[in-house]
Design a protein around this nucleic acid. Structure first.
Lengths: 124, 124
DNA sequence: CCGCCAGTTGACGCGAACGTAAAGGTCATG
DNA sequence: CATGACCTTTACGTTCGCGTCAACTGGCGG
């Protein structure tokens, strides 16, 4: 089976995710994407689209591109020996801890901004 | 009253918040801090300390330094006419919306990473 | 007075994440 | 066949957030 399904051009994805084609090519140069080619033109499938979505959400939560590459590499099992899986688990849990801390920081900031907004409204 | 209270040196604050003095000076150059001087040496008070804490938490949630400066400027009322307060309120609520969106992104990512961690553990 | 530490101001450097030409290939359409 | 739309690569430019000297200035202990 030759992976039937939607194919997207680079500008399709760029529009859908509100980034520039340049950005998508840059992610490919960084090893985050690897679309097929028809000639020289890139052709993206469902999986590529999902990876791109992952990358962009990673970026939205503050991950660096190399962070994201690392996580994506964990997702795609590769040669699966025990030590590698344990390392992957450890790294994943580190990320989780950092994310929860970040969410706490966001919550504090939100609370503070809400109070500030309230006092602003009260003075109108 | 001459604002009695603790005074901190730059390295005091640097240690307390786990940043380098260079970082603190940089924030001052960016207009985020404005400590007193005894001669040329910087002296930080409680308010400066609080501002620094704000800056660092802002950075932790992904704000740029100019974002942070903007928010700090809103906090310090300045010349308080009605239009300005309404603008401040609008900007504050934009920030709030962005922060909530970011928290949602974090929650999604956390959920996904948790599932991934679970499958990793099940394969050990 | 000497050395040393802690502070200061430039000024240049750097990695990350793209933007922005410059120069060209390919394909449809009039 | 020429024009335009869309794709490509190569390569240099830019912004942000500091790091890293370099060179200097007090203040303090011995």
């Amino acid at each position: 089976m030759e992976a039937e399904g939607e194919r997207y051009t680079i500008t399709d994805l760029a529009r859908e995710f509100a980034v520039t084609p340049r950005t998508i090519r840059f992610y490919e140069a960084e090893g985050l994407l690897a679309p097929e080619r028809r000639g020289t033109t890139r052709l993206y499938g469902k999986a590529d689209r999902a990876r791109l979505a992952w990358v962009l959400r990673g970026r939205a939560v503050g991950f660096s591109l190399s962070d994201i590459r690392e996580l994506l590499d964990l997702y795609t099992p590769g040669s699966d020996n025990r030590a590698q899986r344990e390392a992957a688990l450890a790294k994943t849990e580190q990320r989780l801890a950092a994310l929860r801390a970040q969410r706490d920081a966001i919550d504090s900031t939100v609370t503070e901004l809400e109070q500030f907004a309230a006092t602003l409204r009260s003075r109108l």
